[in-house]
């Protein structure tokens, strides 16, 4: 890791530098690289609340982030970013303001702040890397944790289903919301570019494997995301103005077992595979209906 006390180290040189403290197989590492590739050198400020994302920076005076970054309080990313974006706009600067947050800071403690910034249609990109767990504190449930999954606070498996944050964000009628797959690079980069050229509030949800919390193999991370998309658990889609939908990939018949069998977090006595399949089917019935009834426009 480079030392931030030298002028050399303070030069902006990409988003996530080598030497960061991310675990092997962490989805965030690849997500940062693809965000950088998608933005093609655009200047940005990162606002990161309490989450593994800020631990990744390492300790003062070093930083793994090669761009100006604010370590925000847990519930504050979208509000701090609103202040930053306001000053950027007042001073006619085109730097992007990007929130990079975990599911705890998005689905749970930060949701009021997120909702308010979305409702005000602040000019910022909000990216949630969703590892479906409080990873930073050792793996407790969040409202993003899927049903049946074992965590240190749901030792028998979680009783409640995962919160549908995309539906919540779409209900804010924000200009752009999309899901990101770490196994679909072209789709990922295209969505980053769409978010970049859109003004107002943009929400991106990235399924982010956490081998430590998911009890999976680090080398499996990208393939696990690919499987989640193929079996229909993690739909790839976009929502424009909260009303017009485009589905980017459909389930191809890959069985759910291919996804859950490689993660020991799913080894729960309570797991009901039939109910899980019904949930996936119901999710797709809903998505197909809205996408057919309210399709995205040509060129969107």
């Amino acid at each position: 890791m480079t030392t931030a006390t030298t002028d050399q180290a303070m030069l902006c040189d990409g988003i996530l530098r080598p030497g960061n403290t991310n675990c092997a197989g962490c989805g965030m590492s690849l997500g940062h690289q693809w965000l950088e590739q998608g933005l093609e050198g655009a200047k940005l400020t990162l606002c990161i609340p309490a989450c593994c994302g800020i631990v990744a920076a390492g300790a003062f005076p070093t930083s793994a982030y090669g761009v100006p970054t604010i370590a925000c309080t847990f519930a504050s990313a979208a509000a701090v970013a609103s202040g930053v974006a306001a000053v950027r706009q007042l001073n006619h600067e085109d730097d992007l303001t990007v929130c990079w947050t975990g599911d705890g800071g998005t689905y749970d403690i930060g949701i009021a702040t997120l909702s308010a910034a979305a409702e005000r249609n602040e000019d910022l990109i909000y990216i949630c890397y969703d590892n479906e767990i409080y990873g930073n504190t050792g793996g407790q449930r969040s409202s993003a944790t899927p049903q049946w999954v074992k965590t240190s606070t749901t030792v028998e498996g979680k009783a409640e289903p995962k919160k549908d944050i995309m539906a919540i964000m779409a209900a804010h009628r924000i200009p752009y919301a999309a899901t990101l797959s770490l196994a679909h690079r072209d789709d990922f980069l295209r969505k980053i570019r769409t978010a970049q050229k859109t003004r107002g509030f943009r929400f991106l949800l990235m399924l982010s494997p956490c081998p430590t919390g998911w009890k999976s193999e680090a080398a499996d991370s990208v393939d696990l995301v690919d499987t989640a998309v193929r079996c229909g658990l993690f739909p790839l889609y976009e929502v424009f103005d909260g009303r017009r939908y485009r589905i980017n990939a459909r389930p191809d018949g890959t069985p759910l077992e291919n996804y859950i069998s490689r993660q020991r977090r799913y080894r729960s006595e309570t797991l009901d595979l039939d109910a899980m399949k019904r949930e996936v089917d119901a999710q797709w019935a809903y998505l197909n209906t809205v996408a057919r009834t309210f399709p995205a426009r040509e060129g969107e």
């Binding site: 606002c47 202040g83 009021a112």
Partner: peptide, 22 residues
């Protein structure tokens, strides 16, 4: 002047604004 949803966010906006130089 950003009309936020809570005092917690009111101070967060001030912090973001101040860190950006306002």
């Amino acid at each position: 002047v950003i009309p936020v949803e809570s005092e917690h966010s009111a101070m967060a906006v001030c912090m973001g604004g101040a860190l950006a130089g306002a």
